[in-house]
Each structure stands twice: as structure tokens, then as C-alpha cells.
Nucleic acid binder design. Sequence first.
DNA 1: TTTAATAGTTCGGGAATATTGAACCTTTGG
DNA 2: CCAAAGGTTCAATATTCCCGAACTATTAAA
Lengths: 103, 103
Amino acid sequence: MARFTHPRLEDVPLDLALHALADPNRLEMVARLAAAERLRCSDAAPCDAIPKSTLSNHLKLLRAAGLIETTQVGREMINMLRRSEFDSRFPGLLDAVLANRPA
Amino acid sequence: MARFTHPRLEDVPLDLALHALADPNRLEMVARLAAAERLRCSDAAPCDAIPKSTLSNHLKLLRAAGLIETTQVGREMINMLRRSEFDSRFPGLLDAVLANRPA
DNA sequence: TTTAATAGTTCGGGAATATTGAACCTTTGG
DNA sequence: CCAAAGGTTCAATATTCCCGAACTATTAAA
């Protein structure tokens, strides 16, 4: 019954977006999603040491920040970056953040 | 005896910088500093409703993120943005954030 | 030279957030 | 139908944040 709610980008405040990106784990997840189009939750994980519930919570935050969209496919939750929408809302922001991400 | 410690920009992680910017009050303060060169703490405040101790704490965070430099002059603490240093460390980041700041 | 005011910092405790183990829900394979 | 896979939700713990009260340092006034 897991249905997700996605905000309209115009309703996402800058602070929320920045806060979502201001975490090493979430940023890594965003980077993976930026490189991969669509990923299951477990594949979007920044590492395997992170608990499932924490991962789920991070994804929820990224959704609330308008960064990702999640849809259920079978028993998997497929995540994808809302890149063009996010870029329209905050021009240049995601590029700048990703470009400055540590190697 | 208030002497402040400023990090080398190379020691500032991206997450810390983003976290510092991911707060409406602090972002407003950064914007004011970006427009004014040098400001006393009370003049850098985002509004007058904010308690002194909270303000002081915000400034401490901005310092730790390498965003501002504080020096004591008489009984005032003068703050200025470390713009060029920050820009060298995180190219395009501050510009992108400031450009997307709400009106 | 006291005294008082200005400009902030620091400390401590309550409020708000984050993390995560355990229990749970759904879908699919056998 | 039963068990496993893939996640979510809940609740308890841990962490972080906010702000009043007390404090420090510098300057102005008396």
C-alpha cells in the first residue's frame, strides 16, 4: 500500500532543498541517482552499512525536497531524480553541488 | 578576550558548508554580508526578533563553515564574508545559492 | 576612577530532529 | 499457501538546536 506523495517543486523552499543535500549519505545517493536514471532503494544506498530504516528515511527527505520521485514496481520502489524540475526551480544549484562533491 | 578561530577552506567539507547555508536565518545573514562588506553582529542579524545567543551561535556556525571571518574592533565584532576563498574552495556554489534565495 | 551601558560569548536545560532495531505490509517465487 | 524479498512505520534512544541567564570585555559618563 506504499504510495508516495511528491511536492510540487514550486512549494519546495530553498532551505529544505539545501538541507536535503547537506548530508554526506544523501548527497551520495543523489549522485548515484544522477548517474543512473532509475534505482531501487537498496541500489541507491550510499553504502551497505546503512540500516534499512535510515535509508528509507533519507529517501523520504529527498522526496520532500523535490529531488526524487518514487514509484512502486512490483515489490520494489524505483527512485529517479526529478532533475529537470529541480533545475527549473533552482537553476544551477544541483550542478554546483554535484560539481563540488568530494571524490 | 573573544578571539575566533577560522578554518582553512580546504578543511571545510561540503556538507558543513551546505548545512550552514541550509537555514533561512543564516542564509539571510550571508546575503547581507554579501551586500555590505563588513557588518557588526547585530547588523548582520536577519531580523530583530532573534535572541543574541542564537545569533552568536549562527555566526559561529558560519565561521566554522569558512563563510565568514570575524575580528574584534573595540567592543564590536566585525564580520565579513570570505567570498573569494569560499568561491575558490566551492566554485559556483555560493552564487547558485544566493541567486536562488527567496525575495 | 568608579559606574553604567554596549556588544557579544558561553553555559545549561528543554525542545526539536535524527538514527535505528523491531514489527509490519506487499508482492512474488516455489 | 508459505516463505522470502524489498521496504515502510513505529517507538525509543541519541543527537542537535534554541534561547534565557549569567558572564566578559570595552568604552562612555560622572
